[in-house]
Structure formats: structure tokens, C-alpha cells
Amino acid sequence: MLIFVIVLLVIWAILAVLGFAIKGLIWLAIIGLILFVATAIIGFIRRAARRK
């Protein structure tokens, strides 16, 4: 599961960089950043819950 979360984080980061690099795709950067943060939070919560 941890590998899956890391792969998603990498994909979202790439989408965000592409969105900022190409002016017409700024919406892609915003979506990429939102998904990056959401995936990181979900991964952190699941990892913390697994330790308990």
C-alpha cells in the first residue's frame, strides 16, 4: 500500500509541474496539487492507524 501511495504522489507532482510549465494547463497544476495533498494526508492517516 505504501508503494501505491508513493507512486500516486509522484504522478500528482509531475502533473502539477506540467501544469505550471504550460500556461494553458494551470488547472492541471491546481488539480495535481490538490490530489498530491489529499493522497499524502490519506497515506499518513492510514499509516498512523496501522501502527495502533
Score class of each variant (00 low, 15 high):
residue 19 G to M: 07
residue 24 G to D: 12
residue 19 G to C: 09
residue 12 W to Y: 11
residue 44 F to T: 07
residue 16 A to P: 01
residue 2 L to E: 11
residue 50 R to K: 00
residue 32 G to M: 03
residue 50 R to C: 02
residue 37 V to R: 01
residue 23 K to D: 10
residue 4 F to D: 04
residue 1 M to I: 13
residue 27 W to Q: 08
residue 35 L to N: 02
residue 40 A to Y: 04
residue 2 L to V: 14
residue 45 I to L: 12
residue 17 V to C: 09
residue 30 I to H: 04
residue 3 I to E: 10
residue 45 I to W: 03
residue 49 A to L: 10
residue 47 R to V: 06
residue 45 I to F: 06
residue 29 A to L: 04
residue 24 G to Y: 13
residue 4 F to I: 12
residue 7 V to W: 08
residue 30 I to T: 11
residue 34 I to G: 07
residue 33 L to T: 08
residue 1 M to W: 12
residue 36 F to H: 08
residue 10 V to N: 04
residue 50 R to M: 01
residue 16 A to G: 09
residue 12 W to M: 00
residue 48 A to K: 05
residue 15 L to F: 15
residue 26 I to H: 09
residue 47 R to D: 05
residue 52 K to I: 07
residue 43 G to I: 03
residue 6 I to F: 13
residue 48 A to V: 00
residue 5 V to Y: 11
residue 26 I to Y: 13
residue 4 F to K: 11
residue 17 V to D: 07
residue 29 A to Q: 03
residue 39 T to Y: 00
residue 42 I to H: 00
residue 26 I to F: 14
residue 31 I to D: 02
residue 37 V to C: 11
residue 50 R to Q: 06
residue 27 W to A: 08
residue 20 F to V: 15
residue 14 I to K: 08
residue 25 L to A: 13
residue 7 V to T: 10
residue 6 I to L: 14
residue 22 I to M: 13
residue 21 A to E: 04
residue 30 I to G: 00
residue 19 G to F: 14
residue 44 F to Q: 05
residue 27 W to R: 00
residue 33 L to Q: 05
residue 11 I to Q: 09
